[in-house]
Amino acid sequence: MATVTLDNLHKAYGETVVLDGVNVEVASGEYIVLVGPSGCGKSTLLRCIAGLETITAGELCIGGKRANERAPRDRGVAMVFQSYALYPHMTVRDNMAFALKVAKVSKKERYAQVDEAAALLELTPLLDRLPGQLSGGQRQRVAMGRAIVRRPDVFLFDEPLSNLDPALRGHMRVELKRMHRRLGATIVHVTHDQVEALTLADRIVVLDKGQVQQVGSPRDLFERPANVFVATFIGAPAMNLLPVIGEGETCRLEGLEQALPVSGTGAFTLGLRPSDMFLADSGIPGVVDVIESLGSEAMVHVTVGAHDVVVRAEEPVQVNSGDVVHLKLSTVHRFDGTTGRRLE
């Protein structure tokens, strides 16, 4: 197991800047998830760590040693690709043993290691098949197995679950979590799915436009988002953002006569998670627009002043479209109106 340190990492293709000064420290044995919208640079960052892309500026250390110039094979990393990248002409066994074969490990020993990893991933009956004869989930496990067999210092996962159907994805998330616990490995996992990030990560790195927006535990990110971007990216449905003007103990929302019971001064952005509000007999008035039922709960879209606010409510919901309702707030977030940074 090893630490991974990214110190002011830059990556550019000509004029196009993809990574713009990334600083992250991954502790040994930590499960780090890089999350962000597509095009934010997360996959490039992972490929920089793997050695598949050159680093334009800054330093990458793996296990405390500079790795910028090291060839991929000398970095002690194993990577699982989004497409799995299984060698189509090799059996599952040979796929998993390939890295050991290249490393000139004896046949006996490498097959023993493959058998061990296969048992861990329940792949033993599939060892003699070709990748083309496997289902998507099985291929995913083989790709994992191939990484495990190498016993790398660092695992790199590039959207490993995105090609699976939702049910299987949920199952594999649990598998990944178990595997991490059992191997105690350092894992850097890239995804665009914030659920994956929240459920798997020890710490999450949120990336946008090549810059780190926030690094922290899932709870941190959820409870104390560092800025508007993180606030809306983490949590589903997304946090409601309302531009308000503070008047000391209360603040005012455009189009609403009644003041909101939130203290503050000057113009700022008020952040309200759907789960931090509830429908009540009195409070902030609004008109129900649409109701989305999710079975045990529902998302109620309420028009407050000139704004649409989503509120979580327990089913059965007792209101209908067009009804006048009142909202009570539990937790609120405040963000700077211009920079979007969190205000404490």
Binding site: P72, M79, A85, F98
Partner: peptide
Amino acid sequence: IPKDLEEAAEVDGAGYLTRLRHVVWPL
């Protein structure tokens, strides 16, 4: 031949000639 395959082999530790022999040529 998907580029991934060669990259996977590269990360797996295969040098250029090994990649040619074990990944590119069979495909």
